[in-house]
Design a protein around this nucleic acid. Structure first.
Lengths: 272, 272
DNA sequence: GAGTGGTCTAGACCACGCG
DNA sequence: GCGTGGTCTAGACCACTCA
């Protein structure tokens, strides 16, 4: 192997590594020098294959040695690429078993994005929330919604309104908006009948995998409907949580607006 | 030290990389000793030196090659230890320059733990918050406080009450409790006179470095005093943020209780 | 040009899960 | 016992910073 380039020498010329490596190595005219190490290019290839659905949530991907052979790089380089994807919660490593595509279906990580916890551990845990769908309808995006979801104006949306109850107490009133075009065949029965987290449903039925989210929190007072649905008096302050959730490649895929009761629960956050 | 042994000279005898002979010689405890890789032991040694104050915030630590020589391990092993510390925001790497101890003093990361952002980017940013100390006093920990801070009952605390204003508008009313025994020589003038984040003060004056924190959020209504200080009507819901901040080794060092106005600001959070 | 972190390799071996 | 991820080494070279 030549010492002039770290790129694998015996890769055919149409290999993406050839291009990427020589691009980085050759004196780029101007604009973006933006050196991209080999492991990051591998990472992007893995990302593309994840996004393409070649490996589905819950499945295992090829072993590090296999991938290293496929890409003609060393195991260490593949390893570093996987490390980053694991750090972003896209992959999960299990020693002795393999590397798996993250899923919202597994018990372990089912409620990754739900930060509301009971103030005191309830002895009778009941597992988790009970869901009740209040509304399911098709609508057109408002300008704000279209902008947030990066959709054209008036794009068709699915709107779901629901209540989550813990131990029989209605605690979260939530509106969810999703782009209709990615949820082919969705209907109220599917949503109502599904047991388990919304993101698990999206994953299983529509191949939409939520990867990360941003939330904006405010303290608010309930309107008449929220008072009624959550069964609370007017002077109960609520936590308003607006969420924008993303799938691969930072594509926004869900808008969510929730009202959380915080008299018996709290929103938990870790600061690093 | 010969090169035949994997065990570095400075590492305690419990290194799992000791050869079979010494492993057999040392009495292995009954309970599973929970295998700890070499790089994690290195990490703990670095952590100890950080905690000891040998390397102060803002300073650089020895180069990877130096450390590798000191610990008699390869650069890659030191590197992995530093990687983890950098991921935990204890160290910061700067290519070409060195590895530095994280500090709350630097502009870049000054407000790491403040998640309250203006709803709209204000054209006149003003930099950051104005602080006003309302109260500084010594007190004894309540049972709850003592428990949270892992202190003996009635342990002496410093209590600071203050208001943070953004662009002249009082926005955060905050109570801070700190163990008095680690803040030798603290007085009201030091606190009042200091410009900059509280954690920068603690770092510079008392060598206390906050590393991470946990927050519990609730929506509440203001009491009379909060209404007066924040200049808001009774029907303004506020975000109540209770924080427990930790220094090295997960030692709790600060208890904080804040009321945030969220009519013009919001609490921003990223979910991974 | 010297020094630092960052990348990559090839090979060896260890810990773990499972049939 | 085999295959998987996980650790560790030694050495080479690249990218960046600064004197």
């Amino acid at each position: 192997m030549t010492s002039s380039s770290q790129a694998p020498a015996d890769i055919p010329q149409d290999s993406p590594f050839q291009d990427a490596a020589s691009e980085a190595a050759s004196a780029t005219p101007a604009a973006t020098p933006a050196f991209s190490p080999l492991y990051r290019q591998i990472k992007n290839l893995l990302l593309a294959r994840l996004h393409s659905g070649e490996w589905k949530p819950g499945e295992s991907i090829p072993s590090e040695i296999d991938l290293a052979a496929q890409f003609r790089v060393s195991q260490g380089t593949v390893r570093k690429a996987i490390d980053e994807l694991a750090a972003e919660n896209l992959l999960m490593r299990r020693q002795g078993k393999g590397t798996f595509v993250t899923t919202h279906t597994e018990r372990q990580v089912q409620y990754r994005f739900l930060k509301l916890l009971p103030d005191h551990d309830s002895p009778n845990d009941e597992g988790r929330a009970q869901r009740q769908i209040l509304e399911f309808r098709r609508m057109r995006a408002t300008p704000q919604q279209a902008q947030a979801l990066q959709l054209p104006p008036d794009a068709p949306l699915i709107h779901i309104r629901r209540v989550l109850s813990f131990q029989g107490v209605p605690t979260i009133l939530e509106d969810i908006w999703l782009p209709a075009h990615v949820l082919k065949g969705i209907n109220e029965d599917i949503v109502t009948g599904y047991q388990g987290p919304t993101y698990a449903l999206l994953e299983e039925e529509f191949g939409v995998h939520m990867v990360r989210a941003e939330e904006k929190l405010k303290a608010v007072l309930p309107d008449a409907e929220a008072m009624r649905i959550l069964d609370i008096p007017a002077h109960t302050a609520l936590l308003h949580v607006q969420r924008l959730a993303f799938t691969y490649h930072d594509t926004p895929m869900e808008l969510r607006s929730g009202l959380y009761r915080t008299d018996t629960h709290h929103y938990h956050n870790e600061l690093g």
